[in-house]
Simulated scan of single mutants.
Amino acid sequence: MNDDLERRGPEDPSKISLTEAWEVRYWTKRFGVTEDQLRAGVDRVGNGTAKVAQCLGKRWP
């Protein structure tokens, strides 16, 4: 499968994936947090975007 180099966001914005470096960069920039903070949030509450945002004290959407 070819990578879509025009992709600007995650395919499923309701879930945070930490397996792709570009997605980690997207979410850290989107929430204004470090990678460690993002990973800690996902570890704490799972990969649901709304729950991670709440855990990090950020708004979603």
Rank of each mutant, 00 (worst) to 15 (best):
M1A: 13
M1C: 11
M1Y: 13
N2Y: 10
N2K: 12
D3F: 10
D3T: 14
D4N: 15
L5R: 07
E6S: 15
E6W: 12
R7C: 10
R7K: 13
R7D: 06
R8F: 06
R8I: 11
R8Y: 08
R8D: 10
G9A: 13
P10W: 03
P10Q: 00
E11Q: 11
E11C: 02
E11N: 13
D12E: 14
D12N: 15
D12Q: 10
P13G: 06
S14H: 11
S14T: 15
S14K: 15
S14F: 14
S14W: 10
K15F: 01
K15G: 06
K15I: 11
I16L: 04
S17R: 07
S17D: 15
S17Y: 08
S17L: 13
L18I: 03
E20Q: 15
E20C: 07
W22K: 14
W22D: 11
W22F: 11
E23T: 09
E23D: 08
E23L: 13
E23H: 08
V24F: 06
V24S: 09
R25L: 07
Y26N: 08
Y26W: 10
W27Y: 01
W27H: 03
W27A: 00
W27D: 01
W27K: 06
T28K: 12
K29A: 15
K29E: 12
R30I: 00
R30V: 05
R30Q: 06
R30M: 08
F31R: 00
G32E: 09
G32H: 09
V33C: 12
V33A: 02
V33D: 00
V33F: 02
T34R: 02
T34L: 04
T34I: 06
E35L: 04
E35C: 01
E35I: 00
D36P: 04
Q37G: 02
Q37S: 05
Q37Y: 05
Q37K: 12
Q37M: 09
L38D: 02
R39L: 02
R39M: 08
A40R: 09
A40K: 09
A40S: 13
A40C: 04
G41I: 01
G41F: 05
G41Y: 00
V42A: 02
D43H: 03
D43C: 05
D43V: 01
D43T: 10
R44D: 12
R44G: 10
R44H: 14
V45S: 00
V45Q: 00
V45L: 01
N47W: 01
N47Q: 06
G48W: 11
G48I: 14
G48A: 12
T49R: 03
A50V: 07
A50L: 03
A50F: 08
K51F: 14
V52H: 03
V52N: 00
A53T: 05
C55Q: 14
C55F: 10
L56A: 03
L56Q: 04
G57A: 02
G57N: 04
G57P: 10
K58A: 05
K58Y: 00
K58L: 00
K58N: 03
K58S: 01
R59T: 15
R59I: 14
W60Y: 12
P61L: 11
P61Q: 12
P61N: 05
P61G: 06
P61R: 07
P61M: 06
